[in-house]
Amino acid sequence: MTAAALAPLAGKPRSRWKQPSILPGFPLAMGWTLTYLGLVVVLPLIALVVRPWELGLSVTWSTLTEPRVLAALRLSFGSAFLAALTNVPIGLLVAWTLTRYEFPGRRLIDAFVDLPFALPTAVAGIALTAIYGPNGPLGELFAKIGIKTAYSPVGIYIALLFIGLPFVVRTIQPVLQDLDREVEEAAHTLGATNLQRFWLVVLPAVLPALLSGFSLAFARAVGEYGSVIFIAGNMPMKSEIAPLLIVIKLEQYDYAGAASVGLAMLAISFGGLLAMNGVQLFLARRGRV
C-alpha cells in the first residue's frame, strides 16, 4: 500500500471502507498520515525490498551465503536470543519486586529501569566498554575467572542484556499489578503452597506478557548497533554483528550486499514476530477473557 494508491481514497470519506462518523477532519488526518507514512516508511522499505532483486538475486544469494555474513547473522540472532531469554527471569524478578514489595527508594529504582531507553546507545556502548574492557573494573574481575568480556561475544551479550531489560520489565509490570489478588487467595485457600501458587496461578497469567516482553527485547537486540559496536571488538567471523556488516558493505558501496543483509534481518525478525503472535494467539484462546 503506497500513499499514492490510498491517498485518493482518503478524499472520499463516504466510500465503503470507512464507517460514517459525525466527526470532521478525516480526509485531512488520513491524507496526511498516509502521505507521511508513505514517504517516510513505505517508500524506503520498497527500496529495501526491491533493490536486491534489481541487482540480481544471485548477488543476494551469494551475499547471504558468504561465511562472514552467515556468521554475523548467527551471532546477531543468537546473542539477541540468549540475552532476551536471560532477561525474562531477571525482568520477572525486577517487576515482581517493584510491584509486590514496598521499600525505601522503590520509586527511584523504578524510574532507573527506563535508563537504557533514555541513554543514547553510543553512550551506553562506551560506558559498557569502559566497565567490561580489559582494564575496566568488571572486565578485570571476569578476566580473573578466565572470561573475556569485552571484544568478544560475551560483551555483545552484556550490551544486549542492558538494552533489553526495560522491555521485559515494562511489559510484565502492569500485568503483575493488575493480577487479581483474589485468584491467588483462592489458590491459597484451596491448599496450594507458595511455589504452587506461583507456578500454577501467577506464571500462567503473566506468560503472555513474558512472551511479548521477550520478543520486544529480542527484536530490539537483533538490530542493536550503537551499544554493541564499541564493546564487540568487531572481529570478522567472531564478534561482528549483522548491522555492522551492513555498514561495512555500504562503505564499500556494495548497496546490493547491504540491502540483502538488511532484508534478511527484517525477514527473520518478521518471521519470529509472526511465530510469537501465533503463540500469543494460542495462549489467548486458552481462556483469557
Partner: peptide, 24 residues
C-alpha cells in the same frame, strides 16, 4: 506500519535512505 520503525534495526533505517538517495 506506524509501529514498524520500532522493530527495524537503526542501521536498516539509515540504509534505506542510502538505497534511495545514495550515489548508486
Amino acid at each position: 506500519f506506524i509501529d514498524l520503525p520500532f522493530s527495524m534495526s537503526p542501521v536498516v533505517s539509515g540504509l534505506v535512505w542510502v538505497l534511495l538517495f545514495g550515489a548508486q
